[in-house]
Nucleic acid binder design. Structure first.
Lengths: 187, 187
DNA sequence: GCTTATTCTAAACATATGTTATCGTTTTGT
DNA sequence: ACAAAACGATAACATATGTTTAGAATAAGC
C-alpha cells in the first residue's frame, strides 16, 4: 500500500496515524487481463487505485457498440465516479487490459475519510477537481483538435500506449473507427 | 444576495455569520445581452452565480467555428472552471444570451472559504462533483443517444429553451449543425 | 509448438452529416 | 417606425467518415 500512501500524502497534509487508519479500510484486489472490475447496471460503491497494470473504462451503446472513454495506469484512480457519486446504476464498465493489481477504496472508507481525516474533504475536492479537469480537457480537444491532432497528442502524453492496448480501442477513445485511424496513420 | 445564500445553505451547514462574511467578499455584476463575461486566453479568477438571466459557455476552434458547450440559468454557477482550477489560460468564452445579473465569487473569496468556513472544503467538493457529474452525463448521452434523442431529452429538461436561445446554438450544443437540427425537427 | 483468436491494413462501397446559398420571417437597434 | 441584422427552413450538392469484407501478420491459449 506504500504507493497509495505516497500519492495521498502528496495531495494533502496527513499524519502517518491517519494514513494507517484509512488504508486499513482498503484492500488489494487483482484482476486478470480481460476481467471486468465492475459491470454496467450495477450500483457502484468503490474507487480503485491502480498499483500495477492498465485498465479502461468503456460504455456500450444501444447498438451494442463499445466506446472506450478512458485509460488508466499505475498510480491513478479509476472508477465510475458518476455512478459512485449519484447513487445511480453504472453506465460504464471497467475492464483490465493487462493483469492488474488494484487497491479498493470502499465507499465506507471514503466517507470515513471525509469525517475523520483532518483534510478529508480537501482530498475529496481535489479528486473531484482532477476528474473534472480530465474530462473537460478531453472535451476541449474533441472540439478544437482534428482526429490526427488528437492522435498525435495522445502519443506525446502516453507514448507506449501502442504496445499496451489494441489500436481499435485507441481509435474508439479518439472518437473514430479503427479503419479511420489506420487511414490517418498511413499519411 | 438572498438567492446565493439560500443555494449555499442548501449545500452545506453554514451559520448566518459565516454567510455574511463570505457574501461580503462577493459583488453583483450585470451584463447586457451579447456581452462577454470572460474571454478566451485570459486567466480566470472568478466564478459567477446567476441571479437572473441566461448565459452560455462557448469555445472557438481553429477554423473560427463556435461551439456552445453549456447553457446556464438562474440559480446556477457558471465559469471556465478548468481554467480557474488549473491556472491556465481560458479556452472558453462566457457570454450573456439575455440581460443578466450575476454575483461574482472572486478566487480570494473562495480560497478564504476553504480556510475559514467550517464546511468550506465540502462546498468546494460538492461544486467540483456537480461539475463533473454534469460533464460526464453529457458525455454519456453523446455516446449512447442519437441526435434526435438528445434533442428530445433537452426539451424535456429545459422546455422553454426554444424561446430563449437561437436554434443554431442549440444545434451546436447537441453537436450537430443548424441545418441538421432543422432536418431532424421536420420528421 | 501448434492451433485458434485477435489484430492491423487495405479496398470498394455506402451514407449520414456537413456546406453553401437562397428566401421569407422575425427580431433588434436607433 | 424603419432599416439592418439575425434567424429558420429548405434544396442541391459535397465529402469525411463509417461499413463490410478479406487476407496477412501477431499474439494468445493450451
Amino acid at each position: 500500500m506504500e504507493v497509495l500512501r505516497a500519492v495521498i500524502a502528496k495531495m494533502i497534509t496527513i499524519s502517518a496515524a491517519e494514513l494507517d487508519a484509512f488504508v486499513a479500510q482498503c484492500y488489494r484486489k487483482t484482476f486478470k487481463k480481460k476481467d471486468f472490475l465492475s459491470d454496467a447496471e450495477r450500483f457502484v460503491h468503490e474507487i480503485y487505485f491502480i498499483e500495477e497494470g492498465l485498465l479502461r473504462v468503456m460504455i456500450t451503446d444501444v447498438e451494442g457498440r463499445e466506446h472506450t472513454t478512458h485509460f488508466a495506469v499505475e498510480q491513478q484512480f479509476i472508477a465510475d465516479y458518476n455512478a459512485f457519486l449519484t447513487g445511480q446504476r453504472s453506465k460504464y464498465q471497467l475492464q483490465a487490459l493487462e493483469d492488474s493489481s488494484t487497491i479498493v477504496l470502499p465507499r465506507k472508507a471514503i466517507e470515513w475519510g471525509y469525517e475523520h481525516l483532518q483534510e478529508g474533504e480537501k482530498l475529496g475536492r481535489l479528486i473531484a477537481e482532477y476528474y473534472f479537469i480530465y474530462l473537460d480537457t478531453r472535451l476541449q480537444h474533441q472540439y478544437t483538435l482534428s482526429p490526427k491532432e488528437r492522435y498525435d497528442l495522445m502519443n506525446d502524453i502516453f507514448p507506449d500506449i501502442h504496445n499496451r492496448v489494441p489500436q481499435h480501442m485507441i481509435a474508439s477513445y479518439l472518437g473514430i473507427t479503427a479503419v479511420h485511424l489506420s487511414r490517418i496513420k498511413r499519411q
